[in-house]
């Protein structure tokens, strides 16, 4: 029974996550950017832009210039999240590549770092009046959700262990549409329930920032407006009335 519910939950959550993100991203991609608006100074080549985006995504360059505290907490949170997620791949691949096996100890650290980073960000939301002013209920809920996922994971790791092998069998089974029993430890169920929630809300929340950063015209445009004429399709139609 539990197993069936969670199997359905994860199929549903995956479908919503994927469909939602594809919809979002195609919307972003289809909407034209009528004018050249890179924040200058901007790279003058495509590879320069790729490098600019790479810096934004990996070291949060602009954020670093803006505010060292937000940068520190935010960067720690995201890097730790990335490590945790990569580490989680072991539930989905068989056999586990040796590199993935090697980074397992690092992963434990990452679990704590992730929660610590989130706590720092949350603290600022509560303490700094400017940030409290712009914080809404959904911003707190998002942090609560991630903290709860992190804490439940850490609990499993250090306090109430679960049968990892069975968890893996369940997820490998899901991927082959061959449903296997899921252990019924309450913390695992909480962890997985929250993860499914995260996947469902992802495309409909501010979490689309993960995709948005790549579509932001102020960051992804090349500074070449004098050399190359940039014209949106709807703007090209206006030119029909042009005498010369």
């Amino acid at each position: 029974m539990l197993t069936t519910i969670y199997a359905c939950l994860f199929y549903g959550a995956t479908a919503i996550f994927l469909a939602g993100m594809v919809l979002r991203i195609t919307r972003f991609a289809r909407t034209p950017a009528p004018l050249k608006i890179p924040t200058m100074p901007a790279p003058t080549t495509k590879s320069g832009v790729a490098y600019r985006l790479l810096r934004e995504v990996t070291v949060f360059e602009s954020l670093f210039r803006a505010n060292k505290w937000i940068w520190a907490f935010g960067w720690i949170f995201h890097v730790a999240l990335a490590v945790v997620l990569i580490r989680h791949l072991r539930y989905f691949v068989q056999p586990v590549p040796s590199l993935l096996a090697l980074m397992q100890p690092l992963g434990v650290l990452a679990g704590f770092a992730m929660v610590a980073g989130l706590a720092g960000l949350w603290g600022r939301r509560l303490i700094v009046p400017r940030i409290r002013y712009i914080t809404g209920p959904s911003d707190h809920l998002m942090l609560a959700l991630l903290v709860a996922i992190g804490c439940s994971g850490l609990l499993m790791k250090f306090v109430a262990h679960t049968d990892i092998v069975a968890v893996k069998t369940f997820f490998l089974g899901l991927m082959r549409f061959d449903i296997q029993p899921l252990p019924s430890d309450p913390i695992l169920l909480v962890h997985l329930g929250l993860v499914a929630t995260l996947m469902i809300v992802f495309p409909f929340s501010k979490l689309v920032h993960a995709a948005g950063v790549f579509f932001s015209p102020s960051r992804n445009q090349v500074d070449d407006s004098r050399e190359r004429r940039h014209l949106a399709p709807w703007a090209a139609k206006l030119e029909a009335d042009r005498a010369r």
């Binding site: 979002r24 972003f28 803006a66 935010g74 939301r125 940030i131 911003d139 920032h209 932001s216 949106a232």
Partner: peptide, 24 residues
């Protein structure tokens, strides 16, 4: 405008309320 201007759509969707711009 949302159909015509990618910047508007991306910017309205992507803000995480991090607060980095608040004192700029």
């Amino acid at each position: 405008l949302l159909e015509k201007n990618r910047a508007l759509r991306v910017y309205l969707d992507s803000c995480v309320k991090c607060g980095a711009c608040t004192d700029k």
